[in-house]
C-alpha cells in the first residue's frame, strides 16, 4: 500500500504545531496502525529527521496508552484502540490525517503525545474505595447481584484512553468519569463514599478544562470498550441524589 500521511508535528507545548506531509510506500495491510508509524519513524531517523512522538505501551488494546485522531475519528475507522487498528481498514493511495487528542485537559506534550494526567487527578479525587487492607475477605462475604456485577464490570472495562474526550464536541470527560462512578457505585464496597465520590469527581472533571455533557453520544460510539451512555445517566442520578442528600465532600 502507498499512503500519504498528514501528521500533527509540534516540537514542544510552547511552539505552535502544524500538519506535515509524509509519503510511505510498501505498507502491509497486516501491519497495525502503530507499526505503520514505526516504519515511518525508522524512515525519518534514516533521513536524519526527528521521529514522530506517539504514546503506546501494551499494543494489545488493554492499557489505554495509545490514542490518535485518525481521519477525524478517535482511534480511527474501527471501534477499537489505535494499536488494534490494522492497515487493512485503509485502501491503497489513501491520505490519512493523524492528530493528537484535542482537549483543554489534555495539553500536547509533543507531536501526537498528550498529557492525560488530568484523568489521574479525576481518579484521585474519588475513584477509589477506602478499605482497610489485610487478608483478602471471603469471596462470598459481600453478595453482589449478578446484574449489578455485570454492569459494574462493563463500566470497569474503561481503559482511560481519552477517546471519549477527543470525540466529544464539548470536550467532556463525562463518559470516563461516569464509567468510574458507575463501576464503584454499583458495588457494595463503593457505597460509603458514593455521594462524595460523584461530587468530587465531577468537580475535578470540570476543573480540568473538560466540557459538560450534552448527551450527544459521540463518546460511546468511539469508545474501544463500548462503555454505554447509561453510565452517564447513572452518574447524573448519583450526583443529583448527592445534592439532594446535601452530601458535603470530606477533604
Amino acid at each position: 500500500m502507498k499512503l500519504t500521511l498528514r501528521v500533527w508535528r509540534q516540537p514542544s507545548p510552547q511552539v505552535k504545531g502544524k500538519m506535515a506531509n509524509y509519503h510511505l510506500t510498501d505498507v502491509s495491510e497486516d501491519m497495525s496502525f502503530l507499526e505503520m508509524l514505526d516504519v515511518l519513524n525508522e524512515q525519518l531517523i534514516l533521513d536524519g529527521e526527528d521521529p514522530i512522538a506517539f504514546d503506546h505501551d501494551c499494543r494489545e488494546g488493554i492499557c489505554g496508552s495509545c490514542g490518535l485522531m485518525i481521519n477525524g475519528i478517535a482511534h480511527g475507522p474501527e471501534q477499537t484502540t489505535t494499536c488494534q487498528l490494522h492497515m487493512r481498514s485503509f485502501s491503497d493511495g489513501d491520505t490519512i490525517d493523524i492528530e493528537p487528542w484535542r482537549s483543554g485537559g489534555f495539553p500536547v506534550v509533543k507531536d501526537l503525545v498528550v498529557d492525560r494526567s488530568a484523568f489521574d487527578r479525576i481518579i484521585s479525587a474519588g475513584g477509589f474505595i477506602s478499605a482497610p487492607t489485610g487478608t483478602a475477605p471471603d469471596a462470598h462475604a459481600n453478595p453482589v447481584p449478578k446484574v449489578d456485577a455485570d454492569a459494574a464490570f462493563d463500566a470497569a472495562t474503561c481503559i482511560g484512553c481519552g477517546a471519549c474526550v477527543a470525540a466529544c464536541p464539548n470536550g467532556s470527560a463525562m463518559l470516563f468519569t461516569a464509567a468510574k462512578v458507575t463501576h464503584l457505585g454499583l458495588l457494595p464496597q463503593g457505597q460509603p463514599e458514593r455521594d462524595s465520590r460523584v461530587v468530587k469527581m465531577v468537580a475535578q472533571q470540570d476543573a480540568e478544562d473538560f466540557g459538560g455533557c450534552t448527551n450527544i453520544g459521540e463518546c460511546s460510539a468511539v469508545c474501544p470498550k463500548g462503555i454505554s451512555m447509561e453510565t452517564i445517566s447513572r452518574l447524573n442520578h448519583d450526583l443529583l441524589g448527592a445534592l439532594r442528600a446535601n452530601a458535603v465532600p470530606t477533604s
Binding site: 500538519m19 481521519n71 475519528i73 490525517d97 492528530e99 483543554g104 470536550g171 478544562d209 459538560g212
Partner: peptide
C-alpha cells in the same frame, strides 16, 4: 466550558 475544553480545533473531525 465547552469552548475552554477544546482550545485548538481539529483539522479533520468526522
Amino acid at each position: 466550558q465547552a469552548k475552554r475544553a477544546r482550545p485548538i480545533a481539529y483539522q479533520t473531525k468526522k
